[in-house]
Amino acid sequence: MTSATLHDIEAQQGAIADYNFAYLDEQTKRMIRRAILKGIAIPGYQVPFASREMPMPYGWGTGGVQVTASIIGPDDTLKVIDQGADDTTNAVSIRAFFARMAKVRTTTHTAEATVIQTRHRIPEEPLHEGQVIVFQVPIPEPLRFLEPRETETRKMHAVEDYGLMHVKLYEDIAQKGHIATNYAYPVKVKGRYIMDPSPTPKFDNPKMHRSEALQLYGAGREMRIYAIPPYTDVVSLDFEDYPFEIQHFEEPCALCGGTDVFLDEVILDDQGGRMFVCSDSDYCEDRRAHGHRGSLSPDILDGASADGDKEGTEA
């Protein structure tokens, strides 16, 4: 019995059989596919699913990976980002997993991708019709930090009792002068369910509203899948006298000069030196390829291109 199972492992590693396309077995895919369809039919509602152990740890994208593995096919082109970047280690690892297990084409270009798996960001370039964006979700329950019990939060969603959330946001305003939630900022989907957009910065919330792309959310450890179909109203919670607002950066990206994008702060030295660069690495590279320059672009620093500087500051 035991030697046979060892042989099974060897056989699996030697040749990936049809049934292991995209790792999951077909029964698991069916179960996840059913959850995805119900998620689409009930936008913003968290569909429970029997999440499987994956060959990466819980909390590292197992929900997103299971969703992607259940929808992806040989005709797809996959992009994986973490913190907006294609080259962060976990994005590299997940991309390599699908390149190996599903033999799919991968890309770093947002526009080329048919499926985009993401952690913590929505690309700057607007998504288009036919694309699917899959979010890795750590805590799918927007009410979790107000009420830790699933039994209670389920009741609140059932009767649409979201008073607790409004009280929390209002207390923020009363005590701090503004809503102190900067990421995983709660939204209301189709005027019914309050939903956690995953820990994307609230900067990205407006991109969810009536997006052309299908948005799928997978939480592996918490065993929930939810969805927002294209062209669906997604409203960030706020108050009439305290309207929702996104983060604004005072300076443009130091590499591409981009404005109205989410920037990462990079510490340059221990003297307080810092710069701000695009969190979306593909967007930044694309702009630079099209001649845009920021104040700290290598060729600007070298004094090579005065034009670039001008363009950068305009952009």
Binding site: D18, Y19, F21, R33, L37, I71
Partner: peptide, 20 residues
Amino acid sequence: GEPVYQSQRIFRSLMDAMAR
């Protein structure tokens, strides 16, 4: 035929149809 690939294709059509 080729159930893994065919069912993936059918599901994607179904998912797109449900989403639109």
